[in-house]
Design a binder for these strands. Structure first.
Length: 577
RNA sequence: GCCGAUGUAACUCAGUUGGUAGAGUAACUCUUUCGUAAAGAGUAAGUCGUGGGUUCAAAUCCCACCAUCGGCUCCA
């Protein structure tokens, strides 16, 4: 079934849902019910609150009604007719008024005994085409998405042409639940959240910190190759800095405020790093010969997200960026973007993740600042670089920030879900706003162009995606524990500890399990911790001074000397696999 | 912030119409010394999210707050 037919099928199922709801709860007022990417929803204004337990009942009613739905009949109606027809449906009346003002033709679609104000897009024969559907959840949603409006009850569902496709989709949802980074984060002991520290302020355990550091080091090592120099900045700054940068207005009440008790100074926890990096640039006169100047660091910013938007380590109030700013001349941005896109290719390629680039350009409206000529030139450069490096991209007009075009990197995970991670942003405005300059070859002062870049984006957010992508089975170089040495019986503990020490001395993250447990139990525990290598030590190994190696997934590599195990591991670590 | 759900031991969860808390896993102790995904027995562990209220009596009913989860413009 093609995409359009699937959309029609789902939209038809949304009608079916509304028909069932009206059948069961006649006093319910209908809002809208579109098809969405993963299914459909319908917003209702229920007289009595609905709960998840009511969904099976509604599904059953839908099945019943579907039997009599073998067509959709379209009817054009006048505004007067429509107002009469929907006189008890306040949301529909609002739509009718809106559409008639816009001069749209009003249509209703009827199937069985049910009709609805609708612009169309249905299955020809719903009874035949709707193979399988399921109502998934219930949620609140504002009428027309505005928090000023009334909160409606939204019922989410999905539908497919066949039962098999539905089952596959539901299995994917189950798999996603199993991979939830919050669950895995607890099971693998990566991070914790303390009520006393606060919501959205995760704390990282030794294992989680190792992951963070390794990823950050990887990002930094790539950047160093391209001339990025590490800097360090404090995490608070006077409000004046952000008033000048414009972030004071932009971030508004998302800023955490810090009050000095010694002076009258009012500080802000930094929500961004660019104004600070600009201060370093500005600290002395700059020559065109120095450019590009590239500052980077892995540093935490603080943003007071709305309480309801926090989630695990994916949406937090303290987030750590592998942030960098390159100051350059217009004729250098091509090389800079090429460097950045190459780094991104290397990074995500190495982490075994596919990505798409979304190029956000301006349109012809006047909300954009900076010289239009510079915009045109740089947009072309960005797109050329994407083409040259053979990057899967889409260009979208009208999506750019007011201060410059940008590239968003959408990472695709193992379940096919897309996540925005890295962002690369050209900025014509802040250099002007802060009045930073360089002296060009002709002796004139000019504003440099600024490029904001992050490869991983927020490390917390990237980790949440990466944990779900790998379901916690990290490659050896990233695994918090790379080898678990399992002693079969107490008499093997001494040699096991020796092997463990040898591995540690070689720089391998090894641990030894000397508990009074059976081998099976030790293997099970190491497997649950997703440890990539297990070294088993019993009588045989103690005699031959070797170690039997089992790898994640169960494969038995047989007996190896400790040195060859170290070599094997070192090779994986070096290759980042 | 708003709608809805949830909050009981470290974790996963049970706890009937209000009568003062239970299981499995983990931890600890003992026994067992075992060859590729869970040995056995025992011990300890809870301000029932927090604070108020109703009641002779509250995990259970009411109110407020905190936190977590699913959502909150993929537009008739």
């Amino acid at each position: 079934m093609d995409k359009q037919n699937l959309e029609h099928l789902r939209h038809s199922t949304a009608h079916l849902l509304a028909a069932a709801v009206l059948g069961l709860y006649p006093e319910t007022k209908r809002a809208i019910g579109p098809a969405i990417e993963s299914g459909f929803y319908y917003d209702f204004d229920f007289k009595e609150p609905l709960s998840e337990e009511d969904l099976p009942k509604i599904e059953k009613k839908m099945e019943e009604i579907l039997k009599s739905w073998n067509s959709f009949e379209k009817k054009e109606i006048s505004v007067e007719e429509a107002n009469k027809e929907f006189k008890n449906e306040p949301y529909k009346l609002e739509l009718i008024e809106e559409f008639s003002k816009e001069g749209k033709l009003l249509t209703i679609y009827k199937s069985g005994d049910y009709d609805d104000l609708c612009k169309g897009g249905h299955s020809k024969n719903p009874q035949k085409e709707i193979g399988a559907f399921k109502l998934l959840s219930i949620a609140g949603a504002y009428w027309k998405g505005s928090e000023k409006n009334k909160m409606l009850t939204r019922i989410y569902g999905t539908a497919f042409a066949t039962k098999k496709e539905l089952d596959e989709y539901l299995a994917m949802l189950e798999e996603a639940k199993k991979r939830d980074h919050r669950k895995i984060g607890r099971e693998l002991d990566l991070f914790v959240i303390s009520n006393l520290v606060g919501a959205g302020l995760p704390l990282f355990t030794p294992k989680g910190t190792l992951l963070r550091d390794l990823l950050a080091e990887f990002s930094e090592s790539l950047q160093k190759k391209y001339g990025y120099q590490k800097v360090w900045i404090p995490h608070i700054a006077k409000t004046d800095l952000y008033k000048k940068s414009g972030h004071w207005d932009k971030f508004g009440d998302e800023l955490f405020l810090v009050k000095s008790q010694e002076t009258d100074d009012q500080f802000v926890m930094k929500p961004m790093n660019c104004p600070h990096h600009i201060q370093i640039y500005e600290s002395r006169p700059r020559s065109y010969r120095e450019l590009p100047i590239r500052y980077m660091e892995t540093t935490t910013v603080y943003r007071d997200e709305k309480a309801g938007e926090l989630s695990g380590i994916s949406r937090v109030r303290s987030l750590t960026q592998d942030d960098a700013h390159a100051f350059c001349k217009m004729d250098q941005i091509e090389q800079e973007f090429e460097n950045i896109m190459t780094m991104i290719k290397t990074l995500y390629g190495s982490l075994n993740m596919k990505f798409k680039a979304r190029l956000s350009f301006r349109d012809d409206s006047d909300k954009y600042l900076g010289d239009k000529k510079n915009w045109d030139v740089s947009e072309k450069i960005i797109e050329d670089v994407a083409k040259k490096l053979d990057i899967n991209y889409v260009a979208v007009k009208g999506e750019a920030a007011f201060y410059g075009p940008k590239i968003d990197i959408m990472v695709v995970d193992a379940l096919g879900r897309e996540w925005q991670c890295a962002t690369e942003q050209l900025d014509f405005v802040q250099p002007e706003r802060f009045g930073i300059k360089y002296i060009d070859a002709d002796g004139q002062e000019k504003n440099p162009v600024m490029i904001h870049k992050a490869l991983l984006g927020s490390i917390e957010r990237f980790l949440s995606v990466y944990i779900e992508h790998t379901s916690g089975s990290f490659p050896t170089w990233l695994s918090p524990v790379q080898v678990s040495i399992l002693a079969i019986a107490d008499r093997h503990n001494e040699y096991a500890q020796k092997v463990n020490q040898q591995l540690k001395d070689a720089g391998i993250r090894s641990e030894v399990d000397t508990r009074s447990e059976r081998l099976q139990a030790k293997i099970r525990d190491a497997a649950l911790q997703k440890v990539p290598f297990m070294g088993i030590i019993g009588d045989k190994e103690t005699d031959t001074k070797e170690v039997s190696v089992r790898i994640r997934g169960g494969e038995d590599l047989g007996s190896l000397t400790v040195d060859s195990l170290i070599n094997k591991l070192q090779e994986k670590i070096d290759k980042k696999i």
